[in-house]
Design a protein around this nucleic acid. Sequence first.
DNA 1: ATTAGCACTCTCAAGGCGAGAGTGCTAAAA
DNA 2: TTTTAGCACTCTCGCCTTGAGAGTGCTAAT
Lengths: 348, 348
Amino acid sequence: MNDLTERQRLILALVVRHYTETAQPVGSQRLVDCYKLNMSTATVRNEMGMLTECGYLRQPHTSAGRVPTEEGYRYFVTHVVYPSDLPEPARDTISHQFYQARQDVEVWMPLAASILAQHSRAASIVTAPHSERSHYKHVELISTQGRQVLMVLVMTGGEVSQQILTLAEPVAQERMSAAADRLNQICLGRTTEEIAAIPPRADSLEKDILTLVLQDMNRGEQRVSGEIYLDGLTNVLSEPEFLESGDARRAVHLFEERSLLQDLLARTTNNATVGGVQVLIGGEGKWEELKQCSVVLARYGIPGLITGTLGVFGPMRMPYARTIPTVRFMADLLSGLVSETMVGDENE
Amino acid sequence: MNDLTERQRLILALVVRHYTETAQPVGSQRLVDCYKLNMSTATVRNEMGMLTECGYLRQPHTSAGRVPTEEGYRYFVTHVVYPSDLPEPARDTISHQFYQARQDVEVWMPLAASILAQHSRAASIVTAPHSERSHYKHVELISTQGRQVLMVLVMTGGEVSQQILTLAEPVAQERMSAAADRLNQICLGRTTEEIAAIPPRADSLEKDILTLVLQDMNRGEQRVSGEIYLDGLTNVLSEPEFLESGDARRAVHLFEERSLLQDLLARTTNNATVGGVQVLIGGEGKWEELKQCSVVLARYGIPGLITGTLGVFGPMRMPYARTIPTVRFMADLLSGLVSETMVGDENE
DNA sequence: ATTAGCACTCTCAAGGCGAGAGTGCTAAAA
DNA sequence: TTTTAGCACTCTCGCCTTGAGAGTGCTAAT
């Protein structure tokens, strides 16, 4: 597929670049003017004709300039911009912002989403790190008014989940605490399977709790990803291609319907990757919702142990040369955070 | 201000109703046709003229039908639809949906947002219940690889927060657990002030933790509201008034910028209320972002103890007669949930 | 007090027109 | 053989005009 001449690649790159900047179809004249090419418009036209035949460019109508096709973008992404790193100053800025929030686990994910959105000028998606196998750490029972008990379950790694347990009859806080203590001793550090294998408890309260704990842990493992954080939707809505037509609504819909997002994230991260970063252009026929859009995704964390996904969502006309390194850098950064703080217990 | 004749009120109501349904300016002819009024179009025209003079209606241009003004909506809301309840079947549906999720504390808020959005066909806002004074329940220290410790703090009421503590040197998990145990005994059920008054600990680890706990509790109390849950943005974006013009973007922006939302929620809930529900029409000059929009808000929970806010955000042209009762019912329902499960400890 | 009738106003969609931008092709130049 | 200049052609877009339709306000009659 790498069957383009050097000059054709140049022209393709320039068309992509100019189009991403102006959102207007770009003609031969404009190209020569803007980039001081030392060839005539006719030559450019011929090359453009070639590129159009190959399917990398197309014209919206007979007498308009050219616009990159999905193929065009893909060629551009894989053969032109791939091996580049995020410039030093941007990296410093991002690292600094994270350093300031290093204590606040709770803001990490929203912060990552915010930074990603800001630097890519598009919408960002970040999922919290999620481990496929949960390890029990601690359960806490909080008595409430009636026969209802709030159960807070903490996993190693810091994942927290809550459930309500409704008792047959009121139970004193002391008895609940005692039951919790016993379970905490028995279950500490165990996986779902190990806990399921524990012989049933004599005490009916403890049995009930254990059932709920298992249910909770199971649910956590079923889930494909951790919580999803989004930011920068306004960025993509202000792009001209979304100003009218229902595309904007479809984009927002994708963002609101978490199950759609999860589908997207789940299915993508299994494919082959480019330098750790995946680029999904125009939905690739599969995703009706992102006809005019592209998604740049990466995994972070520790493969097989605890991982998350992050990425950027924007118009197909996207500054990939900036976006891809940003996503990659962010993924590396979060991987660092995760391995510093989220594991360790696993080795005990 | 209640200076309208019965007939004028009728006509105002019909204009509002018809406009909310069609999004088109409504003329005298149409009104007579659609609602089988036993008066002539001329009469209707005269009355409309009156209503226009009073400022309740206006015409987009000389020869178009009438459209309600903000005043018009306000009059409609306060004098026409106010005392009505949500119809039985809708109430049942909602109650049922909540009953099915009664165990799952974690889905309550998103579920509330989803239901609210669905029933009002607009965007919904729900904040998690939040108490002004936190009471310490339990702290958990989770060792990680290096000198970093993940601290999980649980309040009575079930609020959970996390922080990272960086130690000067590695500490064994046993020592940390012991320290946590001691603090748990000392601090159980105490408020921020009471904990602040505890004499400084000898052990430097315990001192560090206590500092962090206080910091966390303080931050929780500073916050105006709990976490914010949103849903149904697509509903409002599909309304015709948002199809073009930058209004859509402004709406999305309001939804993304949590601080804006918090401002909105905070400032509104102090004002006078109508049957427990507040209606903010067209931003009331104060909120640039919701020029064309209305917000219907209510508080829920136990006043002074633990409260949250919920509401609906949509175009000014909103079916208030449905929306207001829905919001009220939802607030009552969440209040019930909160008082069943979130308090109780307070009385010990 | 209500209504029929009428002249008037204004928007909106459709059609026509010219300017501008860009193309493809051909033939000449390098 | 490759590049370039020239030219005829095509298509969009903005602008204007025009006519239909909807709705109004006013006046005079009921």
